[in-house]
C-alpha cells in the first residue's frame, strides 16, 4: 500500500524560478490496485513519481509504503520498495550491455551486490521464463547488446527489468510516449498483463486518454500539484476518451 500525505514540493526555492510543484498532495493506493494518473504538462505528475521513488525530497509531508514511513529513506535504498519504468527506453536500459547483463543488473535491485558471478544458470532460466512473456523472441537473444534492439523491444525489456526483482510499488511513467502507435499498444498491453499477474500496487502516468479509461481500476486527474478529480470504475465506463480530454482542458 502506498500513502502520500500532505506532500509539498517546491523547486528552485528562493530564486525567480520558484515553483510550487506539489501542494498538499494526498494519495492512497491500496494493495493490488492499478491507478492511472492524467493531467496536463507541468501539473506535477512526474514530480510526484520522483517523490515516491526518492529522487526528490518533499519539503513537508510523508511517503508511506506498507505502513512504514520512507520519507527520509535515500533513493538507492528505496529501490528495494519502488520500481520505476521511465519514458525513454534509452534511459531505462543500458545499450552497451547485453540483455542478460541488463536483467542481472535489475535482478539485484535493492540487494547487496557481492563478488559472485552474475551469469548463473539459475538466473538465466528465470530471465528466459520472464522474457518469454513478451512474445518478442528476446529469450533467445540474451547475449545481444541492448543497443541492437528496437525502441519497443527496449521498452518491453525495461518492463521486465522493473518486475524481475521484488518490489512493493510499480511506477510507470508515460512508458509508451516514445513509441509508434502500434508498438505503444503492444507495450501497453504487455504492461497491463504484467501488472495483473504481479498483483501488486501500480501507478501509471499517461497522456493517452484511451489507455486512461481502458486500463487500471481508477483514474485520477491532476492539476497544479493536486489531485482534482477522481473517476471510479463506474464513472469511467460512461466516459469516452474525448470527454476525458475535455475535462483536462476545462481545468
Amino acid at each position: 500500500m502506498l500513502k502520500l500525505s500532505n506532500i509539498n514540493v517546491t523547486l528552485s526555492k528562493g530564486t525567480p524560478l520558484h515553483a510550487e510543484i506539489l501542494q498538499n498532495l494526498n494519495l492512497q493506493v491500496g494493495n493490488g490496485e492499478f491507478v492511472i494518473i492524467i493531467g496536463s504538462n507541468g501539473c506535477g505528475k512526474s514530480t510526484m513519481f520522483n517523490t515516491i521513488a526518492g529522487f526528490i525530497q518533499p519539503d513537508s509531508g510523508a511517503v508511506i509504503i506498507d505502513d512504514s514511513d520512507v520519507t527520509d529513506v535515500k533513493c538507492a535504498r528505496r529501490a528495494a520498495l519502488v520500481s520505476l519504468v521511465m519514458q525513454d527506453p534509452r534511459v531505462g536500459t543500458m545499450e552497451h550491455m547485453t540483455i542478460e547483463e541488463n536483467l542481472s543488473m535489475a535482478y539485484m535491485r535493492g540487494k547487496a551486490r557481492g563478488l559472485c558471478l552474475h551469469n548463473t544458470c539459475e538466473r538465466r532460466n528465470l530471465f528466459i521464463e520472464k522474457l518469454a512473456l513478451l512474445n518478442m523472441n528476446l529469450e533467445n537473444k540474451l547475449d545481444q547488446l541492448v543497443g541492437n534492439l528496437s525502441g519497443g523491444q527496449r521498452q518491453a525489456l525495461s518492463l521486465i527489468m522493473a518486475i524481475i526483482a521484488d518490489y512493493k510499488i510499480l511506477l510507470l511513467d508515460e512508458i509508451t510516449a516514445a513509441l509508434d502507435p502500434s508498438t505503444a499498444d503492444n507495450v501497453m498491453a504487455i504492461a497491463a498483463k504484467l501488472v495483473q499477474e504481479e498483483k501488486r500496487t501500480a501507478i501509471m502516468i499517461t497522456h493517452n486518454m484511451h489507455y486512461a479509461l481502458t486500463y487500471g481500476n481508477r483514474t485520477l486527474l491532476m492539476n497544479r500539484g493536486k489531485i482534482v478529480r477522481e473517476y471510479d470504475a463506474a464513472t469511467r465506463s460512461s466516459l469516452t476518451p474525448a470527454m476525458l480530454a475535455a475535462d483536462i482542458g476545462e481545468i
Binding site: A76, M97, R113, L115, L117, H118
Partner: peptide
C-alpha cells in the same frame, strides 16, 4: 575480469553507462 563479471562489477559498469538507471536499481553511486 572476475570482479567485473560479478554483481559488484556489473554495478560498477552501470555507473559508467547510465547513472539514472543505476540509482533506480539501487546502486550507491
Amino acid at each position: 575480469s572476475f570482479i567485473l563479471s560479478t554483481d559488484f562489477g556489473l554495478a560498477l559498469r552501470s555507473i559508467g553507462q547510465n547513472k539514472r538507471l543505476a540509482v533506480n536499481c539501487g546502486v550507491q553511486i
